[in-house]
Amino acid sequence: MRLNRGYAALTIALLAIELAIALFLNDPIVRPYVGDALAVVLVYAGIRAVTRLPVVPAALIAFAVAVAIEFSQYFRLLKAIGLDQNRFARMILGSGFDPKDFIAYASGAVAVLLIERYRRASRADAGIRTVSPSSESSSTI
C-alpha cells in the first residue's frame, strides 16, 4: 500500500474544515448540509489516499459510510454505547437523525464523481497520461 500524498493532503485539509465547521458554526445551512456533503468528500479522499480503489467504488463506499452513520443516529448508537455525552463522538458521528442528510450525502458523492470526471478530462486534454487504478502510485491531486 502506498500513500497518495495528494489525496492525503486533501483529507487533512477537509478534516480541518470539517472541524472548524463543527466547532465554530451553528447555522441552518453550512453546518448541517454543506458539512455533511463535505464529510462524504473527506471519507472519499481518505479512501483514495490509502487504497488504489477506482473513483466510483471509493465514492460509493464513502456514501455508504455516511448512510451507515446516519442510520446509527436513527438507532441512537451513541446512547446505546454510552457516548451520547461525549462531544468528540457527537462531533464525528453526529447526534440526530435527519432524512434530509441523505440528500447532502448524495450531493457530496455526486460532486466527487463530477470533479474526478472533470480532472480526468482535463488531464486527457492536456495530454497527461491517466493512470489505471492498478498502477497508480503516489501521484498528487
Rank of each mutant, 00 (worst) to 15 (best):
Y44F: 15
P28I: 03
R52N: 13
N4L: 01
A37S: 03
L93S: 00
A124K: 15
I47L: 08
A58T: 04
G127E: 03
A121P: 00
A58F: 03
F24H: 10
S135M: 10
L42C: 11
L53W: 11
F88V: 15
A68T: 10
L93R: 05
P32Y: 09
I141A: 06
A8R: 04
I115W: 01
K100Y: 13
T51I: 09
F97Q: 02
S72P: 01
A62C: 04
L14V: 00
R117V: 02
V40L: 05
S134A: 10
A39N: 06
I128P: 01
G94P: 06
F75N: 06
L114S: 03
I103D: 11
S72F: 06
L25T: 03
Q85W: 14
G35W: 09
L10D: 09
F97T: 02
L38W: 07
R76Y: 08
T11W: 05
P99V: 09
G6T: 03
F75G: 04
A8Y: 07
L113Y: 05
I47K: 09
L23Q: 13
N86M: 06
I47D: 04
L23P: 13
F24D: 03
A20C: 04
V55C: 02
V55W: 00
A8Q: 06
S138T: 11
L15V: 09
T11G: 13
K100F: 14
V34R: 01
M1T: 06
S135H: 11
D125S: 14
A59Y: 10
P57R: 12
S137T: 14
A13Q: 11
V43L: 04
A39C: 07
N26H: 15
G82W: 00
A20G: 07
V65G: 07
A45K: 07
L78W: 03
R129M: 01
M1Y: 11
D101R: 12
D101N: 12
R52F: 03
R120M: 03
L60G: 05
Q73L: 02
L14G: 06
K100A: 11
R119F: 01
N4H: 15
F88E: 11
R123F: 01
R48V: 01
F24M: 07
E136V: 07
A64C: 04
L83H: 11
S95L: 02
A109N: 05
D27E: 00
F63W: 15
R5P: 00
I128Q: 02
S137C: 12
I103Y: 15
R90Q: 15
L3F: 15
I61D: 01
F63Q: 00
V41Y: 08
A8C: 02
S122C: 06
K100V: 10
A16R: 11
A64S: 08
A62T: 01
Y33C: 08
E18V: 12
V65I: 13
V112M: 02
R52H: 10
F75I: 12
A106M: 08
